[in-house]
Design a protein around this nucleic acid. Structure first.
Lengths: 230, 230
DNA sequence: GTCTATAGTCGGATAGAC
DNA sequence: GTCTATCCGACTATAGAC
């Protein structure tokens, strides 16, 4: 501990931002980048510019911070999705909601996914955490699923039923919704392969628009028989 | 070390299986389940029923084992994909390859993905490792990408060009291929959400067939304009 | 080639001063 | 509420006997 104590400190903390928020921000970043095991409490505390003991003090431990991060993702996601989901839920209450209007709402939601959830730099950290929880669910998966996935899925299922007709097999409709979500999600989940094949450094607005166009075109193809035989 | 030394040992190893292979098998399982950081050398050695020091002896360290696991995934994947890719590469050499035949080959490859790579129990361990490398690439991503992803992508791109016509934008065609792959991959990558929404314990043959039908139907829709205007 | 024993480091958590 | 100092267990890697 000779030289170390002499190093300049960058300043303890900007006034006004509480350690709690700073730790959640650090957790979002580092759990996303390195996974739960890969992110150490020391890394987290250093990034948040708080003392190591603050993790236990505010969250009871590393696991507690992780769950708080999951809650935070749910809140943020609902902040983004909430108004759109509410609009869809309202529309679904109407008996007379047409196929065309349902299709338009579905497209809107998908477009939102592509243009808002694929762009940098917050949401890709969420996605790493979400995907890891999909592959190996822990307690946090329940928080994420009940928090925003289920409401989102329900809205999409509802729209798909209106487009394809209620007589269709429930299972088939759900699978079709997942398949469509897959078209958009693959660009979040396999970004390294996409970027290598296309020589993209990152998803910029122009590239996102190209993705949007392709998926919208695919959507029309997928639902063309349902929409035309109205 | 009192009682511990008295415990029964289940037998050192079945004759014929070398530690090297057993470690790779253990790595496949545990790196897939717990990620690189989450799987400890002790867990790996115990699962492989080999001595802890064997990891360093055979692979130089934990990292070396991880890369060997990536190589193993490439070999296995090429064992499965190889014949199909070779068939497609041959077909693509023919000037006269029709749209319909290209579409059929594309469908075949997708069906293979669904029925062979979604079923239990080996391949889902591969997928966890692959997806983690997509999200946070390490040295292993290069092995996976050059080993099987690029050849696979090239084959799919080639087929898509034949179906949609060579005058189409290269970028658009690649994006369309990724989107289509996404339809199949979402069932590997977001299995927890899919299973919760559909009350499936696992993907059985019947459920896989339902997924296959939906995706094949979507494919027809997506390429309908290209195929009809031939 | 296989093993035991251990070095050296770093992990999460906590006690207790301020 | 915030900090330092420290515990103790777990980690990877290795030395050296067999």
């Amino acid at each position: 501990m000779p030289l170390r104590a002499l190093r300049y400190r960058t300043r303890k903390a900007a006034s006004g931002d509480e350690p709690r928020k700073r730790l959640i921000e650090a957790g979002l970043d580092l759990f996303g980048k390195y996974s739960f095991d890969g992110a150490s409490t020391r890394m987290l505390a250093e990034r948040a510019e708080v003392n190591l003991a603050a993790i236990t003090y505010y969250f009871g431990g590393k696991q507690g911070l992780y769950l708080a991060v999951a809650d935070h993702i749910v809140e943020q996601m609902n902040g983004l999705l909430g108004p759109r989901l509410a609009k869809i839920q309202d529309a679904l209450k109407k008996e007379a909601l047409s196929k065309e209007e349902s299709f338009r709402l579905l497209c809107e939601l998908l477009e939102f996914f592509i243009t808002r959830l694929l762009d940098r730099p917050q949401t890709d950290k969420w996605l790493s955490i979400i995907v890891r929880e999909e592959l190996c669910p822990t307690e946090a998966f329940g928080i994420l699923f009940e928090g925003f996935m289920r409401p989102l899925d329900q809205a999409l299922f509802g729209l798909a039923v209106r487009i394809m007709g209620q007589r269709r097999d429930d299972r088939e409709i759900k699978l079709r919704v997942f398949a469509i979500m897959g078209e958009a999600m693959v660009f979040s989940i396999a970004p390294s392969a996409v970027k290598r094949e296309l020589n993209w450094g990152n998803y910029g607005p122009e590239n996102l628009d190209a993705i949007r166009c392709v998926i919208m075109d695919n959507l029309k193809g997928i639902f063309s028989t349902s929409l035309n035989c109205s």
